[in-house]
């Protein structure tokens, strides 16, 4: 795939592909997202050197956001100004959430010291995710469970669930959106 593997796409190429994508060209849009992923990876890597695990998650979060909010691109502005503004927002958001989590974990640690029977964090996270997943519609839940949690491919998921491949893709995409809303609701 062109533009993949660290070789930089110019502002003009990026912009042309995004605009073609926005008027319905899937291949151009694919190339745009791929190049944007590389761009974002470099951007987050420079800023999150100490948290390498977070970089790829943040790249994916930002790609989802860029896709969801693609109608907010103003064609009179450089694409990179738009992309970096979104990346900055997502980065700030991550740091804020981490800070809040650390504060919460601190107070949890104190409580745990007083109350040895408190359940373990990991167990709770698992139960939480199950509960959130249970609130999604059947098709979305199946798609996410197989692809995200069990690591199956689109084709395998389609075979197991009897859904079409595109239904699986749509299910994962919508399900992830719904899930991130639910999680945000919990964090707020």
């Amino acid at each position: 795939m062109k533009g993949h593997g660290g070789e930089k796409m110019s502002e003009e190429e990026l912009r042309r592909r995004l605009l073609s994508g926005l008027s319905g060209d899937n291949r151009a849009y694919h190339a745009f997202l791929q190049a944007t992923g590389d761009l974002l990876r470099r951007y987050f890597h420079r800023r999150l050197g100490s948290l390498p695990d977070e970089v790829e998650d943040l790249v994916q979060d930002s790609l989802l956001a860029i896709h969801d909010k693609r109608q907010t691109y103003d064609p009179t502005l450089p694409v990179t100004a738009w992309l970096y503004a979104i990346a900055r927002y997502k980065l700030a958001d991550l740091l804020r959430r981490r800070q809040r989590r650390e504060q919460r974990t601190d107070s949890l640690d104190k409580e745990t010291a007083l109350e040895p029977s408190a359940p373990e964090h990991d167990e709770m996270a698992g139960r939480d995710l199950d509960r959130l997943l249970a609130r999604l519609p059947e098709r979305q839940r199946m798609a996410i469970r197989h692809m995200k949690l069990e690591g199956l491919s689109v084709a395998e998921t389609a075979q197991r669930t009897g859904m079409s491949k595109s239904a699986v893709k749509v299910g994962v995409h919508r399900g992830l959106k719904a899930l991130s809303k639910l999680i945000q609701g919990q964090n707020a």
Binding site: G21, L22, S23, G24, D25, N26, R27, Y29, H30, L33, Q34, G37, E56, V59, Q60, L63, L64, H67, R70, Q71, M147, K148, V154, S166, K169, V170, V172, H173
Partner: peptide, 19 residues
């Protein structure tokens, strides 16, 4: 999910947006 897969997923559906 790998980032490449996510990209393919996002680029596979309806990508056009009304102006």
């Amino acid at each position: 999910m790998k980032t490449d897969e996510l990209v393919s997923l996002l680029a596979a559906g309806e990508v056009a947006v009304p102006r």
